[in-house]
Every structure is written in structure tokens, then in C-alpha cells.
Design a protein around this nucleic acid. Structure first.
Lengths: 200, 200
DNA sequence: TCCATAGCCATACACCGTATGGCTGACGCT
DNA sequence: AGCGTCAGCCATACGGTGTATGGCTATGGA
């Protein structure tokens, strides 16, 4: 009904959000404006508002769909350390594709707060394997997620020297793995003086 | 020379940057605009540009001075675990005071890239205590910093449930401490199957 | 005395998100 | 066939943004 004069077919949410994501990938958050997006779609800026509440909702849409479509490593029965590393790498790969989106996701974690999402379920599964007790799952996964996104953003903003990123990532993963091991293996070990045990 | 008609004294960088920081604290990054800042200082917007190159430079100024003035725990000879915790708490406290600034700092780490800054020197000192070998200092500190800022932003953006933040922080610190212990104590220990050792 | 200049400001431009309201044409119903 | 409803689109306008340009004025040094 009343299709654009300049276009054949009506707009679709899919079309809008994928073009928006592309703009974000190309020019960061500032690269995405309703006007530029409309121009890219050969449409009047205000037409977008028939499909999306506002710019914020649009970005939320982009992020959540991208998060849901993210490719995650399956449960292949390998040790939790390997699986955690694989998950980290998946994060990493995705972040390199859509740095600006991750950026936003990190600043607005409520977008992926739903614990039913695959990313959380995957992380939970691995943490269970690592021996993290059930009541600590939420807390530990939050902390890990904060760590990883923090690292990944530091990388994509160009802080970490490019040629060392791989080893930096390795250091990060080893640190996490070591930390998790210490947390679950705690029990009469001669761990470290001053701090010991898990529950505060 | 030619002082503002509406003001007695000429503007100072100090005055500009502190008011700007306040605006940021109160209203986030969007709360700070050259026009609002000028209004707050009872001055024409364009007057600011006689003291600051542009908005970006202004924010950079805010961040770097705030980072340099940050109160850090002194070397009191206590075990590195305690000192690391104290440093984390200092970060934490500062971030709660200036969340938007930290936010920006996290996205633009180059602002505090200078390894001569107190924060880095302090972190280096603690990491040396923890047994991190010299050539790994840069890498490890970067990763840790990314972790901590990542965590702190997750908290200040309201992701982590407020009443549990303290325990979440504890989990984070313990994880890091555990990870560092594992990395430096590595040598013939029965650490974990699959992954072991430090260098990749 | 004269002038360079520091400090300030008025105006203007291009951009932004979006409120408002109106047009058009496809559809369901009588 | 006539009608109303409504999805889809668009033109206009408002208030906000950062900042380029150029001009004013009072002060310090020569």
C-alpha cells in the first residue's frame, strides 16, 4: 500500500537492520544516522519510523538479532578449558566483524540480559563443567562477560598492538582459565596467603 | 584582555575542564555539549575554542587530568594479592564518581597509553610482586586493565544487580588473583589437563 | 602613540533526531 | 459500487549539535 515513489518494494525490518549494521560496521556509531540510512535505502528519513520506534530501538534491534545469530561452538565433549577458549574465540571473531555493535552492546548489556539466550546458555554449560557451583553461575558469567567484552573492545579500539593481539588474547584466556581453576579447586590447597576460598 | 562582558575574570583551562567533568558526571556524554558548557560558564560557546581545540580535545583533557589525579594505594609492603585488591578498589571508587569519563576512557585507551603514568607504574609494581616476568608486563597489564574497565563499565551501566555488586567485584578480583597465581606458579604443577604453561 | 594580540562574541552552515500532519492506494465490508 | 480504515510513505519544521569565519575590544610592549 502506497509504496515509495523511488522504490519498487516496501521496506522490511530485515533490510533496514542489515543496512544499518553495515553502516555501523563501516563508520562506527557516528556512521549510522537515520538520514544516512534512509539515503542508503533510497527512502525518506521519516519512512523509517514506520518500522522502528526510534534510533535507539533500531540499534537495539541490530544488536539483539546479531547476538542471537552469533555462531557458537557446540558441546563436543572436550575439556572445559578448550570449550571456554573456543567460546572466547567466537566472541573475538564476531567482535572483529562488528566492533561498533559490540561497543554498544557492552555499554547497554540489558539488551542481552535474557539468560535464555544461547550465549548465556553456552557459557553456563561451560562454567558448570568447570565446577562453578550453581548459585555462582550468574555472578561468574557476568564477570567473565564483562572481562571478555572489555578485552575485545580494548582490542578493536586499537589499544593493544596489532601484531601481539593473538598472544594478548591467549594471556587473557589463560588468566581466566587459571582463575576459574583456582576457584573450583579451592579446598585445603596451599593456594595463596592472604586470600583464599570462594565465598566472601 | 577583552574579558567577557558577562564575567569578571577570563576563562581558565582548569575552570573549563572541571565544569565539563561535572556536566559529564551529571548527564553522561550527552550531558556535555559545548553550548551547555558555555552556558554553565556564562560565556559564548565560541569562547571555549580559544582554550580548547575542539570537543574531543576537551574530553581528552578531562580524562587525562582525572587519570593523573587518581588516588592510588601506596606500596605498603603487603602481599601482592592485597595490593591488587586495593588497586582494584581504587579503580572502582573512581569509576563510581565519574562513570561517563571512565566509559570514554575505556573506548579511547590511547589517552592513557603513556606507560609512565602512575596507574601503570603502580600496576607494574604489583605485577612484578606477583611474579609476572618483565617481558610479559605490558601484555598482562593491558589485559588486566581491559578486564577491570570492562567490569567497572558493566557495573556502572547498571547491568550487574546493585545489591550484589560488592560480591561480584570480589568474584572478579579473586578470579584475577587466581589467574595470576596460576601463571607465575606454573612449573611442573598438576595445574589442569589440556592447557598448561604460559608462552603460546 | 601605535599596534599586535589575547580574549571574546555574533552569525552562519551543515548535520542530527524526530514531532506533526497529510497524501496515496490497497483492502474489507456492506 | 461505495465507503471507511489503515499501512506506507513523505514534506515541513523545530530544537539541538559541533564549529568555521570574521569582527570587536582592551591590554601589554615597543
Amino acid at each position: 500500500m502506497a509504496v515509495s515513489a523511488r522504490r519498487g518494494a516496501p521496506l522490511t525490518l530485515e533490510e533496514i537492520s542489515s543496512t544499518a549494521l553495515r553502516l555501523m560496521d563501516e563508520g562506527g556509531v557516528e556512521g549510522l544516522s537515520m538520514r544516512k540510512l534512509a539515503a542508503e535505502l533510497d527512502v525518506n528519513p521519516m519512512s523509517l519510523y514506520h518500522h522502528v520506534d526510534n534510533k535507539d530501538a533500531l540499534i537495539r534491534l541490530i544488536c539483539s538479532t546479531a547476538a542471537q545469530r552469533m555462531e557458537l561452538p557446540p558441546d563436543d565433549g572436550s575439556p572445559w578449558q578448550d570449550q571456554l577458549r573456543a567460546l572466547g574465540l567466537a566472541y573475538h571473531r564476531n567482535a572483529l566483524e562488528h566492533p561498533a555493535m559490540w561497543h554498544h552492546l557492552h555499554n547497554h548489556p540489558e539488551i542481552i540480559a535474557d539468560r535464555g539466550l544461547v550465549i548465556w546458555q553456552t557459557l553456563y554449560r561451560i562454567l558448570r563443567l568447570a565446577g562453578v557451583p550453581e548459585p555462582e553461575l550468574r555472578r561468574t558469567s557476568d564477570v567473565l562477560h564483562a572481562f571478555v567484552t572489555g578485552f575485545v573492545i580494548a582490542e578493536t579500539t586499537g589499544h593493544l598492538p596489532a601484531e601481539e593481539v593473538e598472544r594478548d588474547f591467549d594471556t587473557a584466556i589463560r588468566l581466566i582459565i587459571g582463575g576459574l581453576s583456582g576457584m573450583s579447586e579451592r579446598s585445603g590447597s596451599s593456594e595463596s596467603p592472604g586470600q583464599s576460598g570462594l565465598s566472601g
